[in-house]
Write a protein that binds this DNA or RNA. Structure first.
Lengths: 152, 152
DNA sequence: AATGAAATGGTTGCGGT
DNA sequence: ACCGCAACCATTTCATT
């Protein structure tokens, strides 16, 4: 990946719908050259895809929470992971080192909704013996993408 | 937002670069009608923008960690928030209720990089008296978008 | 709020460097 | 790996319902 790819990627992170000809005139290249490079970046798996970014507040999902979960035995994990895959409110599920086993990021409508997810969906699962919930009061920064540097 | 908007949004979350005419033929509408609806969704702020999704592993950012931070006095917060805004590795910064003040999601190259961020960047700041780092071993689920339901 | 048709503008395949 | 050109396809505008 050279500095031109870096510029193309940065532009596409900012605006995933910008046209090749727009990029071409910004970067002083021809549109076919841009199209070639973007196709290569997609084939290399550097660009995984494109997505519309939605506003969760506007759509009524104003509550964010992180939930740490401890699971007592290995054989209970598959069921837990299936539940996590099923729950649309669970945006992220990470396997964590340290005290807790899993860390979930949950986006939901409010406290009632959060209560349902914790009490009815997660704590009912066999093997889930501890949860710890951190409610988010406000979000200062939230970007989806990684720290790009020209040397990549 | 009606069920047609819902279908348009879902398609654009899956593929942010799909063409209006492609959507139009999937949804049995004309391209100008799709363009109208998308423009309205953008004006309403439901669609905030579009972005290319990058693969952090492929780009060498294979380590994810969550860092809880406690800050002792109000007047130290502005400096902390400025540092958070500046650090590209900090993908998210949430103001949390409960024991810790802030929760950061950090994406970096490895343990050395994480060490630098914690020891040199964050703990050097005045007022930062406690940090707790949770290293992520693997990520089971990671979506950027919110649980869409037709009734929105 | 949606449509068809025409004009505009972007993409893509190809030959050449 | 890039360019220019031309053919093709998508978008946009507008008159109409």
């Amino acid at each position: 990946m050279d500095s031109l790819d870096y510029k193309i990627i940065s532009s596409l992170v900012d605006n995933g719908r910008s046209t090749w000809s727009e990029l071409a005139s910004n970067l002083q290249m021809s549109a076919p050259a841009i199209a070639d490079r973007v196709r290569r970046l997609e084939e290399q798996g550097i660009i995984k895809g494109y997505s519309a970014l939605l506003d969760s507040e506007t759509l009524g999902y104003g509550m964010t929470a992180f939930i740490s979960i401890s699971i007592d035995r290995m054989e209970h994990r598959a069921l837990f992971l299936a539940k996590v895959a099923e729950l649309a409110e669970v945006q992220e599920c990470h396997h964590a080192a340290g005290e807790d086993d899993y860390l979930l990021k949950v986006r939901c409508r409010g406290t009632k909704d959060l209560d349902r997810i914790i009490s009815e969906e997660l704590r009912q699962l066999p093997g889930v013996f501890k949860t710890r919930t951190t409610i988010i009061l406000s979000t200062v920064k939230e970007t989806h993408n990684i720290p790009l540097t020209e040397s990549d």
